[in-house]
Structures are given as structure tokens and as C-alpha cells.
Design a protein around this nucleic acid. Sequence first.
DNA 1: CTCAGTGTTCAGTG
DNA 2: TCACTGAACACTGA
Length: 264
Amino acid sequence: MPELAEVETWRRLAHHTAVGHTIEKAKCWDDRIIFDQNAPVSVSKALNGAKVTGTERRGKHFWLTFDRPGHLYIHFGMSGSLWRLQGDEEPPSHRKLELTLDTGERLVYRNMRRIGRIRWLPDATVVPPVSKLGPDPLEPEFTVSFLKEALLRRKSPIKAVLLNQEIFAGVGNWIADEVLYQTQISPHRQCSELREADIQKLHQVLLRILRKAVGVQADASRFPKSWLFHHRWGKKAERTARGELLQFDTVGGRTTAWVPDVQS
DNA sequence: CTCAGTGTTCAGTG
DNA sequence: TCACTGAACACTGA
């Protein structure tokens, strides 16, 4: 489930596993969607013998930095994930990249449905998509006044705006629905018609949800029972923990789970 | 067999 | 130019 919380969890995993260590072997599986045409070769060439110096993330995008120029940029798409393997642990299927470190541990990028990206870039921050992203909500510049300014000049429904990564980056479909449920705002509400109090609440609730989700390593079984998250997947007329009836609409081109009795 | 899906990008519209 | 919408992308599983 790669939204901000999952990607941040994987970034931390990569950080703890790789920073300060040298890549002894970098293996790429041929995939012209995950990599571009000839990139697998250049990626593994660039990585061999490189020492990892850091990990960075903005929204759902993340990259590694090294003791030499260049970034390993990674996007998980809809079905990507990152694995840490110790000893001779079995790797998952659909591997696209495997980094073997000088500790003997391996970092494996897996992507089953192939919508995702790995690139070797001179500087991930200056080219799209990262250069086009709005601020990350966990960074200090994501203030209430920033949010107010950003939202009030948009005409789309709030749900569509939450999904727009150029405004601020990291919210995906389930987090957007969760935020709107917990702030009692309808996903159909026009952004420009939000009130000051709504925006303050959005800011506070979004941060609360992100911090909680990151705090439990994005393990959905540890999300609070009161969250809409647990009831949104069947796309049936389910009820929340409080007994409220869910409705499913398409907003911003995505299936949107919400509770009309509570959100307006 | 059909279709939706935790995301992004791009063509088309107004 | 700009804001916005909807389709396309690949594959799996319901």
C-alpha cells in the first residue's frame, strides 16, 4: 500500500539496512517499464561498489544517496514494496532490483504489477516527478497558512485536490478518504468553499493520521479500530465501527469511500 | 470472462 | 498558459 506512510517505513528500513555500507552486488531484472530501455545495465553499473550515505523521501517518492554523485530513485507505484533479507532468506517473487551489502544483507525491490519506477539519476530533486511535487506534509513548511493558501484557490472537489501531488505530496486514495472521514468533510465539497475551521481541522487530522500510520510502521492491523480504513475495501455497503453506513462514489477519478451521515 | 485497483502521466477541453 | 478531467499504463484477483 504505497502511500506516504508505507514509503516512509521502507525508507527507514533502507536507511537502517544500508547507510554506511557498501553495495557489493547490484542485480537488476530486465524490465523495460520499471527501468527504461537500457537502464538496468547502467543502474547496476553505477551501484556496484558504491557506499550508501543517506536516504531521502518526498511524498511517495524516495531515493538513496551515495559517496559519489548520483541518486537511486525509486517509486513503488500501486504494487511495489521493499524487502530486507538476512542470510539465505527466500526472496519474494517479481524481484526487480536486489542490492547485496557488505553486511551480507540484501535489499530487494519487488513489483508485481509493474507500475513503478527505478532510475539512476544525477539528481532526483531537479527533474520530474520530484521537482514538480508540492511539499511533504511531514516537513515544516506544511503549515496551516500554506494549506489555506493552497486549497482556497482550487475549484475541484477536496478529494481530487488531496490526491494532487503538485499541491502537497504523499496522500493517496485511502489516506484522502480517511482524512475526510475524520474531519467530517464531504469528498465532493468544493475546495474554495472550505471554511477556515475546516482547513485547520484538515491540517491537524492529516498530520495525526500520518504520524500514527508511520508510528506503527504502516501496519494496517495496528491502525485504530475507529478508522474508516478497516471498512472501505469491500466496496459493499459496509458499516464503520460506529455503525455508520458507507457510500462509494467516484471522485477525482478514484473510488471514494465516505459516510454521508457524518460528512458534509 | 470482466473489471477494479493503494499511482502517475499525458492528451484533450474549456 | 492554466486548471482540470479522464483515459491509459500492467497485472492480479475477486
